[in-house]
């Protein structure tokens, strides 16, 4: 077990050296890579040690080419309303792998400077019928192709792009919350009070980065479009220890969870992927793989939660009057 995990981590490490160009070694089990420059943009450098031909170790600036999409810097203002050409972003969530580790939530919150109680991504406990076994259901913005939230926005502060992404321009949002109401999946959250001070470097607000947030406006999952420009997966996908979240470009027909990269079309076909509440006609861009042949007991996802948090799921687990079990 342990050995296998180690191997996985090592593979992950190698994958990272492979894809990112910049190499670093993981200190332990899945620890963060020493990747210092988080902000986008070309022409970045890092200090590296180089062994010269003469056999001397010198420190030089190494150019990091982490720009995968031009322009690399997240667009400002109206430029952000144009999708990234040729891209069609999708997410695939493997319900069989989710065990409510909640690392995706933490990664997302850290990356987007959210408060601990602000969750762009929520993990629900679902039960499809009284006889069914509950399963964990991560849910963030579905970036619908027919988004009910965008329809109702009176000022065009939330918009749909050609690359599937639905974004919020907090510089324009008037905070009417109609989009929050219109979303059938309750994915949108409101900045009820002053957002926390941001330590994430940013030059000017871009809807793709969503940082810094503004009081009195609506925010939600942005599919980490700014990270895609650097060829990086969204925070949630990279922080999931189970690799349950796959992200990718449908036009490339590939989705990746950081370790494995799979063909999107085959994955959906073979694993009978579905979209949540297809009947609503919102045409989501997030697909789910059914929670069959699960790797974990759903109860293992409860273990780490405080008792008060566990009670929230009692109704799902035991039925309304606690009689079902």
């Amino acid at each position: 077990m342990k050995k296998k995990e180690d191997k996985g981590n090592r593979r992950k490490f190698l994958k990272n050296t492979f894809t990112l160009g910049a190499a670093a070694l993981a200190t332990g089990s899945g620890a963060a890579l020493a990747h210092k420059n988080e902000s986008g943009g070309n022409g970045k450098t890092e200090k590296v040690k180089v062994l010269t031909t003469e056999g001397k170790v010198v420190e030089i600036d190494r150019h990091i080419d982490d720009c995968k999409i031009d322009p690399c810097a997240p667009p400002i203002g109206n430029a952000a309303r144009q999708g990234i050409p040729g891209r069609s972003f999708v997410m695939v969530i493997d319900l069989a792998r989710c065990k409510n580790a909640r690392k995706c939530i933490e990664g997302c919150q850290k990356g987007h400077n959210l408060k601990p109680d602000q969750e762009w991504l929520k993990v629900y406990l679902m039960k499809d019928n009284p006889e069914g076994e509950p399963y964990w259901f991560p849910r963030q913005c579905f970036h619908c192709d027919n988004p009910p939230c965008v329809k109702v926005c009176p000022v065009g502060a939330t918009f749909k792009r050609q690359d599937n992404i639905v974004l919020v321009d907090e510089n324009r949002c008037i905070g009417c919350k109609f989009c929050v109401v219109a979303c059938p999946y309750s994915v949108r959250i409101f900045n009820w009070d002053e957002p926390p001070e941001s330590d994430i470097p940013h030059e000017e607000y871009s809807p793709e980065v969503s940082v810094p947030a503004q009081i009195g406006t609506v925010s939600k999952c942005d599919f980490c479009a700014d990270r895609s420009r650097e060829g990086k997966l969204p925070y949630c996908a990279t922080s999931c220890p189970m690799g349950a979240l796959y992200f990718g470009d449908r036009n490339e027909d590939a989705v990746s969870n950081g370790t494995d990269t799979l063909r999107f079309s085959q994955l959906i076909k073979e694993r009978v992927g579905y979209r949540y509440r297809e009947e609503l006609g919102t045409k989501p861009n997030v697909y789910y793989l059914p929670p069959v042949e699960r790797m974990f007991d759903y109860e293992s996802g409860l273990d780490k939660l405080p008792e008060a948090n566990q009670k929230v799921y009692d109704e799902i687990r035991f039925g309304k009057n606690g009689k079902n079990k």
Binding site: P154, V155, G156, A157, I174, G175, F178, N191, I215
Partner: peptide, 18 residues
């Protein structure tokens, strides 16, 4: 409205679909 100070956006950026 969370942002009463932006109320004029209703005229500037008004969307007839809403």
């Amino acid at each position: 409205l969370g942002r009463l100070d932006r109320i004029h956006y209703l005229l500037f950026y008004g969307r007839i679909q809403s």
